[in-house]
Each structure stands twice: as C-alpha cells, then as structure tokens.
Design a protein around this nucleic acid. Structure first.
Length: 203
DNA sequence: CGGCCGATTATCT
DNA sequence: GATAATCGGCCGG
C-alpha cells in the first residue's frame, strides 16, 4: 500500500482525474478497512469553470477547495447525498476531482452492510452518492488529509490504467451550467469492456 | 430497457 | 426563498 503524495494532487484537475482511475480509496470504519478501486472521476477547474462550485468565489461550503491539494472536499446536495472530491492544484486555486465510481476491493461485507438493498447488483458502487453511502462518508470527513494513511479516509496508488482504456465524456448533472462548460469532456471512466474495472456507467 | 419525477435539507443569495 | 456535481421507483413500450 503506497499512499498518494500531496504532489500527486498539485497538478491540473484533468490530469489528476485521469490518473486517479485505478487508485485505491480506503475508509477506516469501526476498525475495518473498506476499499475500492476508482473507475470514474470528474474534474472541476476553478473559478473560471462555471460548472465548478468555486465559480462564484469562496464560500463556507467550498472553502476546502481553496486550501492545499490532497485534501477531501465533501459537500451535501439534493437534500440527501454527500459527494467526495479530492482537492487539486496549488493552495489558493480552487479545483477538485469528484470521485464518481469504484469497484469493491476489500471489506466488501461492510460495504454491502451499508447498501443492503443494492449490494452485489451490477453497478451498485457506480455513482458518486452510492459510493459515499457504502463507505459511510459524510460532512464529518470534510477537510481530511487523503494522503495520510492514518486518516479514516485516504488514497493509495493502484495499477495505472492505460490511456486506451479510458474514455472521456461531458460531466454529469450540470443542467443549469452554460456552454461550453456543460459539454467539455472532463469526465473520465474506465471503458465498459475492461474485465477487471468494469463500470456500469460506461455502456 | 429508457425516461420521468419526487424525495429532502445544507448552503447560498 | 431557491437551488442542487443524485438516486431509485414507477411508468410505458
């Protein structure tokens, strides 16, 4: 297990999003390790990006994005869902990568216990709110250091995904975001025919 | 299958 | 007072 370094995140969000595919996300819960391999991620690139939460400047919610890279930006939306992001780029420049899907790697029985209805079905961890539910991630973890394996939430290196196994599409759910931001292909996911890191959303 | 729609509340204006 | 980086159930074909 090799934790990712803060320098890994101190790059453009698009680059980090691509390279986070294949990386290992681990949540320590009640002494158990719940882990998954990231198969989908989206990049949000600062105040210029009208799809990014930082587009209107710094607020209490997005403050972590303005901090140093490698930390967790976790926010609440649609009245019921928590979203997990990794802050990217230098301190003071707000950008992040939204983790959108994982394949189960360890502690599957605990992941399943958090998703009693969907556990085991195809795509049961393929969705940004699905994985936060399975990993029991909420606002209490906002601002945590994702590079510290002593944290209850951290990221570690995995097998690199070859470029030809990665597809890019527009980001999801940006209904009221103007063009071109709505259509820029800053969503990255492992292709559907990948035997190991299959992502239900890539069909 | 695919498309539509209601749920539910922290945060922002 | 309005909005939301979603999900899952329900409906029709």
């Amino acid at each position: 297990m090799i934790p990712l370094e803060h320098s890994f995140f101190n790059r453009p969000a698009t680059e980090v999003a691509r390279e986070l595919l294949g990386a290992q996300l681990t949540r320590v819960l009640d002494g158990h390790h719940l882990s998954g391999i990231i198969t989908e991620a989206e990049a949000y690139l600062g105040e210029e990006d009208l799809g990014c939460h930082a587009h209107a400047g710094k607020t209490r919610r997005n403050a972590v994005m303005y901090g140093p890279p490698g930390f967790a930006y976790i926010y609440f939306t649609y009245g019921m869902h928590w979203m997990l992001n990794a802050v990217t780029g230098a301190e003071g420049s707000p950008a992040a990568v939204l983790i959108r899907a994982i394949q189960p790697l360890a502690g599957v029985e605990w992941l399943a216990a958090n998703r009693p209805r969907l556990a085991g079905k195809p795509g049961w961890l393929d969705g940004p709110a699905k994985l936060t539910q399975a990993l029991a991630i909420d606002g209490d973890l906002n601002g945590f250091d994702l590079c510290d394996p002593g944290c209850d939430l951290f990221l570690a290196a995995g097998d690199a995904i070859a470029p030809e196994r990665i597809q890019a599409t527009p980001r999801i759910g940006l209904y009221s975001v103007p063009e071109p931001w709505k259509s820029i292909p800053w969503r990255f996911l492992v292709t559907a025919d990948d035997p190991l890191l299959y992502n239900e959303n890539s069909k």
